[in-house]
Design a binder for these strands. Structure first.
Ligand SMILES: [Mn+2]
Ligand SMILES: [Mn+2]
Ligand SMILES: [Zn+2]
Ligand SMILES: [Zn+2]
Lengths: 153, 153
DNA sequence: ATCGAATGGATAACTATTCTCAATAAGAAG
DNA sequence: CTTCTTATTGAGAATAGTTATCCATTCGAT
């Protein structure tokens, strides 16, 4: 039952987490930022900056795309959003899991899904020993064709 | 001894491989393309398009950056170069290992190194079973600080 | 040598992201 | 509640990596 309750409120928890993190770092909570937090916390896919902006225009007609970018930069700094860089698709953002985790990406339609987590700690240690790098993060993407695109040829 | 010989000639082999692949797909081998192949095969880092272009200007003063991009697009199509997309650093290219393999990237200076290979076949199968995707490639990046940047830290 | 197609070079166009700056509003202080 | 300071917003300009365009050149088959 704890689990079910957590699942229902996970989005709200994320918004609260973002708010408290920004307060701690002496940043102001504006209506624009709050609205962006909510979009990020409620998105299941991995929206682009422009997708976030588009979703906000209904309730915030004057929302600027620059504000979306600035807020994303801020959340990146504070470790509250994960940025997935794609020079072709454009960057995508995960506000629900702001820590490294694998992604499965459809090269047909651009869909990005979160599979179950993977423990790469052992591999990471091996890489540090081998290269001498101090590794703090990773990125693991799998590329393929989603079930939907497989059907549609 | 076979191993030693292969190491000495790996760069040449890569150029030959690129040449024969382009011939097979009915593309012409021009001096410009050959020069780009050589740069790719001999680079230990992971150069950007602009870095490749810069390295070529000495012996090919009229080489156009557009030609570099066109050749890279061609090599990507033919599976003879691996493109690492970075929206901040700019894209980087590996002509020596045109198949998926891990990379260790310094967030301080942008250095990218190839550690030893990793077998992700089991994990890939798990991802396919879980998501229904038909996975054909992957990308595994580790981010950290290289030994050099740690010293100058 | 001739011809049609592929390629190269120069540059314009494009696009995601960042920058600039005047106007506004958050939040602390009184 | 009002005032004050300063971070933030929004609009648009600027930037940068990449792609598209177009004509001259080159390749290579006949
Ligand atoms: Mn994710
Ligand atoms: Mn590599
Ligand atoms: Zn798809
Ligand atoms: Zn470094």
């Amino acid at each position: 039952m704890t689990t079910m309750y957590q699942q229902q409120t996970v989005a709200i928890d994320r918004v609260e987490q973002m708010v408290s993190r920004l307060k701690k770092s002496d940043h102001r909570i504006t209506p624009q930022r709050l609205a962006i937090f909510k979009i990020l916390a409620n998105s299941v896919g991995h929206p682009s900056a422009e997708a976030i902006h588009g979703a906000l225009l209904d309730n915030h007609p004057t929302m600027s795309l620059a504000t979306v970018y600035k807020t994303l930069t801020l959340l990146k700094q504070e470790g509250e959003v994960l940025e997935l860089q794609f020079s072709d698709l454009g960057n995508r953002y995960d506000g629900n899991k702001p820590y490294p985790h694998p992604h499965v990406i459809c090269t047909g339609c651009g869909t990005i899904v979160d599979p179950s987590l993977l423990d790469l700690d052992d591999i990471t240690k091996k890489m540090m020993n081998e290269t001498g790098f101090k590794i703090v993060a990773h990125r693991l993407d799998f590329y393929g064709i989603c079930p939907e695109c497989q059907k549609n040829g």
